[in-house]
Amino acid sequence: MRKQRFFTVITGIFLILAFILVVVPATALWAHETGTAVSRDAAPLENDDDFDDFDDEDEEFVTIADPLEPINRGIFWFNDKLYFYLIKPVTKVYRIVPERARISVSNFFSNIFTPIRFTNALVQLKFRDAGTELGRLLINSTIGIGGLFDPAKNIYGIKKKNEDFGQTLGHYGVGQGFYLVLPVIGPTSLRDGLGLAADSYYLNPIYTLDLKDRDKYTLVVLDKINALSLDRDTYEAIKKESLDPYLFVRDAYSQNREGKIKK
């Protein structure tokens, strides 16, 4: 019974979405997206650490421990095959959906994931960022029609603050632990893997709402495939260009996470 209602809701959302896209294709929302007058966040404090001193050439920059490398490489290989033989073809077909609709799907998921960002900003005592997230939720859920659009950013210039529990742990000094490649999910670390589990279990509405398992997985898969469809084949480029894609991904992952935590 509940499942049926759930699908009615989803179908409804997509019908509304389709209606909006057909009837008002060039609304102010989109005009703002292509406009150049994007307001910016105030420049963060100057950070002298960003300037390299060129005396660091004895360092090796090994950024993350990888005691499980043989296993990780195995899973990396598995994920690679999964990507090229299943996920990529599915994504290609999915790209038939017009880009605008896919951006709206992405906005929708981003909006319902607000609890993750809001709570983690709050726990890190970043009250301004938490406020930003709350404001965005209110604006995008109303003017943005249930989160399908992002007027908070496109009209008011309020940008999303990405936070998650892995970053919160890092913020309070917890190290990455070691590198982990999970089946399907991909690169993570001990810390961020635990963070992801905590976020999913306590804060991610897809899991916290009382949904049927099948609906949960449908939503998770839709979110991932949709996100991938908007990406410009970054993984293919890495695969093609690096001498050892495993090493490149590992290092890029850890740098990216550490960079986010510093913000």
């Binding site: 090796e60 920059f61 090994v62 950024t63 690096s242 001498l243 050892d244 090493l247 490149f248 290092d251 890029a252 740098q255 990216n256 550490e258 960079g259 986010k260």
Partner: peptide
Amino acid sequence: EVSLVRSFRSS
């Protein structure tokens, strides 16, 4: 946040 020099140095 991913520095090319750092990534290349490491790998």
